[in-house]
């Protein structure tokens, strides 16, 4: 479950943030980072024009780790004009398969 902190903004931002983050796909599992449970918190500051994402990776030395972080930042800056995005990677709580959403599990089970 993502913790949202949204200030100085219009309605629908939360949905737009989720839609945007869902375009970032883990290239090995073919699941987006939201359903994979990698995103822990999103802070949207309309005044500072800044979006901060707190997320994790499935393993510390994941070969695609940098790509996923860059994709997250690029996607937010692509969909939110003139906003800056920053991504903070955290290792607590440590990610495990129980973080995957029911939608994600459905894709993996196919």
């Amino acid at each position: 479950m993502i913790a949202f902190d949204i200030s100085n903004s219009s309605d629908g931002i939360k949905d737009k943030l989720i839609t945007c983050l869902k375009t970032v796909i883990d290239p090995e599992l073919f699941i987006n980072i939201v359903d994979l449970g990698l995103v822990y918190a999103v802070k949207f500051d309309g005044k500072k024009m800044l979006i901060s994402v707190q997320m994790t990776l499935s393993s510390k030395f994941c070969p695609m780790g940098d790509s996923i972080i860059i994709a997250t930042k690029n996607s937010l800056e692509r969909d939110f004009n003139n906003f800056k995005a920053e991504v903070n990677v955290v290792w607590e709580p440590e990610w495990n398969y129980k973080f995957i959403s029911p939608e994600g599990l459905k894709i993996l089970g196919e």
């Binding site: 090995e28 073919f30 070969p63 690029n74």
Partner: peptide, 21 residues
């Protein structure tokens, strides 16, 4: 994956790009 990282790591999220597979 190795080839993909070299070509697409910085572009991912900006453009629609192929997946490693």
């Amino acid at each position: 994956y190795i080839i993909w990282v070299k070509h697409y790591e910085q572009l991912t999220g900006k453009f629609k790009i192929p997946l490693p597979a």
